[in-house]
Write a protein that binds this DNA or RNA. Structure first.
Lengths: 330, 330
DNA sequence: CCCAGAAAAGCAATCGATTGCAAAACAAAT
DNA sequence: ATTTGTTTTGCAATCGATTGCTTTTCTGGG
């Protein structure tokens, strides 16, 4: 059922029908009513593709996430999609994975679809390859980043003070008389490197600056958290605190400690990052640094909508403050 | 950079360029090469909107999920998106929420976008409102359902034997000498009602058929699981087993039992459903009925792709078998 | 009753591709 | 050189809307 079919049935031209569909003025009230009835009767629905072609806008927004499965990102896809779809946009959520080429490929594919805006979630999008792809494929549409930033005129970034946040966590443990702290990093994203910096700063200001070297690698996963904790216990039996870049590994670290007969938090404190649901399920409940991922994403979504509405006096970057949610592991 | 711009630069017609872009035959090899170079040089990208208009296909697939945040659905959006996008489709993931109208609204909006196929995840889409919406808005495109079914010619369903699965769980507990079992249901979805049926069947065949009445309501959430467990303990201090329709509430039930000084699984067994990551995090680790949600979704995706490729000899419904993952709570 | 000015409706171009059919270019055979 | 047949290429219509501009219709004042 196209606009022409309706026009024919109503005995008017397609233009007239179009104007009724879009509530434009200059139509005799009677005609308008008649056409409206016909539209309803035929349950006419405008073809968004055709509309997008002439309007040169798809009312679609691309959302790039490395991996939607991380508990960390779970809420995001939900709330951001909700917010944007309330504003009349349709979301194209793409899991890009880690490799640069797949991110570039995803941007390219979205560009082909004439997206009106792009939202990228996660600091891994803060890289040269993505920057180039955006310059190349989407130089003119608004782009927002949650937990990242790129120095391009059309890109706005929302960040969080992770360096400080982690430093605060370290200081919290120190204030509980736990000075010998290890730091566990899953991967070298810009975001995690920031955290590591905060760790090192705070440690050097404490009584055991040599712990600044206690940095361990562990890809995100339950098994790794368990494994790395045992490794730390072996190399540093005197360890007093564990600072993680995410919650999952921290949860299994708690289990590893308990399994080894080490009381938590009496002998060793554990702090996770992200403040996901896992924190409450952990027993004892996990203290965590809330990195405000959801807030960052929502703020990015709002900024994107503002830009789409033509507001171009927005700051290039804004900074949120993380906070510690203290539970039972400190 | 449109196809006409390229045509002008190359001194040929748009048709010729189009044929090169789409690798169609009937172009002189030399011309083809020259145009290909030009395409690369100008980094030309076909406008999918325009292409969609004439081809009457958007190469987009709608994915309906009530709420992507449920751990239960976490993997799905990831793997299904991956599978479909490998096949060249772009996914429109929509969180519809529970109310019928929002599901209908979502279907309507997707129809406007001329999606080529629709995938619905979850038994809540098995309802009259959705059926009507599909008949109305998408009578001709392939639709696949994970964990649900609708009697329409263009709808294929993938189901799981939940009734049996739960019955097996009950029998497992019974074989461990736990006969007095309560069933906790979060909401009356078709899927959960199936499970309840399995519960009742198995219980009636056991030594304590009166427990078939021990059915408790609890909306999904950690707090509810804790609360409802205490309520059950109060009303039936002799309870020996708890069967949940999802994992989260089961996890907090375990905690409630331990907090009440009741040994798990010695005095009371607990079984969850879904087999999410929470099972491993729970301490003791949670035994769960794997409802094969991921497998169902992947199978639906494959069926959808088959239908899109014109295979219309697919069975209207196929059935998968659930399995019990026994861990430490039984 | 005529005419100006406003209101309503329609024409036709446009968005950026695809594609059936016609035309042109080329090659080979007579 | 002409004809025939095969490749290549181009023309123009089409997909389903939107919109500037023109034309038609209406309204009311003189």
């Amino acid at each position: 059922m196209t606009i022409y079919d309706i026009a024919k049935k109503a005995g008017v031209s397609a233009s007239t029908v179009s104007r009724v569909v879009n509530n434009k003025p200059g139509i005799k009230p009677e005609t308008r009513r008649k056409i409206q009835e016909l539209l309803k009767e035929c349950s006419y629905t405008p073809n968004e593709t055709a509309r997008g072609l002439v309007k040169r806008s798809s009312r679609m927004i691309g959302i790039l996430i490395t991996d939607i499965r991380y508990a960390h990102y779970m809420d995001i896809a939900f709330f951001v999609e909700q917010e944007l779809s309330r504003a009349g946009y349709t979301c194209l959520i793409v899991n890009t994975g880690i490799p640069d080429e797949s991110k570039v490929e995803a941007i390219h594919r979205l560009a082909q679809r004439q997206i009106d805006g792009l939202l990228m979630v996660g600091s891994t999008f803060q890289c040269a390859a993505v920057q180039e792809a955006i310059e190349q494929d989407l130089p003119d549409i608004p782009v927002a980043m949650a937990n990242g930033y790129l120095p391009l005129p059309n890109v706005k970034g929302v960040l969080v003070d992770e360096c400080n946040g982690v430093a605060e966590c370290i200081r919290l443990m120190q204030s509980r008389n736990h000075q010998k702290i290890a730091f566990i990093i899953p991967s070298s994203t810009p975001s995690n490197l920031q955290k590591q910096q905060g760790f090192e700063q705070a440690i050097r200001q404490g009584t055991h600056p040599e712990c600044a070297e206690w940095v361990y690698q562990s890809p995100t996963s339950l098994e790794d958290g368990y494994r790395v904790t045992n490794q730390i216990l072996q190399e540093h039996p005197d360890v007093e605190g564990l600072m993680f870049c995410e919650d999952e590994a921290a949860v299994s670290a708690v289990r590893a400690l308990l399994d080894a007969g080490i009381p938590v938090p009496e002998q060793v404190s554990v702090i996770g990052t992200d403040n996901t649901r896992y924190c409450e399920i952990c027993n004892p409940k996990l203290t965590a640094l809330d990195n405000m991922m959801l807030e960052m994403s929502m703020e990015s979504a709002r900024i994107l909508l503002e830009s789409l509405n033509g507001n171009n006096s927005l700051p290039a970057r804004i900074m949120l403050f993380s906070r510690i949610i203290e539970r039972e592991t400190t």
